[in-house]
């Protein structure tokens, strides 16, 4: 465990807390993409299926349960919560996710770390899917032009988590002799690159004060 990975996990937890606060606490799903929320639920349920047999550490175990639980809770409230449904904008949240899920599934089968193990294929699929899962959310924000304050912090924390993981992989690559994981490297790079535009507008709007809403062109 290194500081980058720890901060990355904390940032990921923060993004969940912000989103849960908005959706469950604030009873509002305005500006939030259900498609992204559902893809994240798929990412965690597929990647953390090794909960059943791989007990790397208590820390990992608890966080995996937390991420699966939080992502499913968010999807549940966005789908069945009365006030959340009322504020969720289904026709704007229209990114064709089948064009994201299908290629990731094919890639997961073709490019993974051990072709003899189905879990490795599922794990690779979840890594690829996570890299593009934010697209419907960014697409929705782009369409709405203005990003509500809490939503902007949620997206920022989510972007920061994978950026910190990139530093973690760099650090592990330098300090651990045989450490190399090309799959997560490339996917993490793509994932973080997708946030660059948002980060720029987030920084521009927040430098005048944390409570300004983010404007996207």
């Amino acid at each position: 465990m290194n500081i980058f990975r720890f901060l990355g996990d904390m940032s990921h937890i923060l993004s969940f807390l912000l989103l849960l606060h908005k959706i469950v606490g604030g009873k509002s799903a305005a500006g939030i993409s259900l498609r992204t929320a559902e893809m994240y639920a798929i990412v965690f349920c597929t990647r953390y299926i090794d909960l059943l047999w791989n007990f790397a550490s208590l820390y990992n175990y608890l966080l995996k349960l937390l991420f699966i639980g939080a992502s499913l809770t968010i999807v549940y409230f966005m789908r069945y919560g009365p006030s959340q449904k009322a504020t969720y904008n289904a026709d704007e949240d229209a990114f064709p996710v089948q064009y994201l899920i299908a290629p990731c599934a094919v890639l997961g089968v073709l490019i993974n770390q051990d072709h003899s193990s189905p879990f490795e294929m599922v794990w690779a699929f979840s890594i690829y899917l996570e890299a593009v899962a934010i697209l419907p959310q960014l697409f929705l924000l782009q369409k709405q032009g203005e990003v509500e304050n809490l939503t902007s912090h949620y997206v920022f924390a989510l972007g920061a988590y994978r950026a910190l993981y990139l530093l973690n992989w760099m650090f592990r690559f330098m300090t651990e002799p045989d450490y190399q994981q090309r799959i997560v490297w490339l996917s993490g790079l793509v994932q973080t690159a997708l946030y660059c535009d948002f980060f720029y507008h987030y920084y521009q709007s927040k430098k005048g004060g944390l409570n300004k809403s983010v404007k996207l062109p």
């Binding site: 090794d50 790397a56 990992n60 966080l63 991420f67 051990d114 879990f119 490795e120 794990w123 997560v184």
Partner: peptide, 10 residues
């Protein structure tokens, strides 16, 4: 590509 190492990251 490294054989399926135990996944120690989230």
């Amino acid at each position: 590509i490294s054989k399926g190492k135990p996944k120690d990251e989230l």
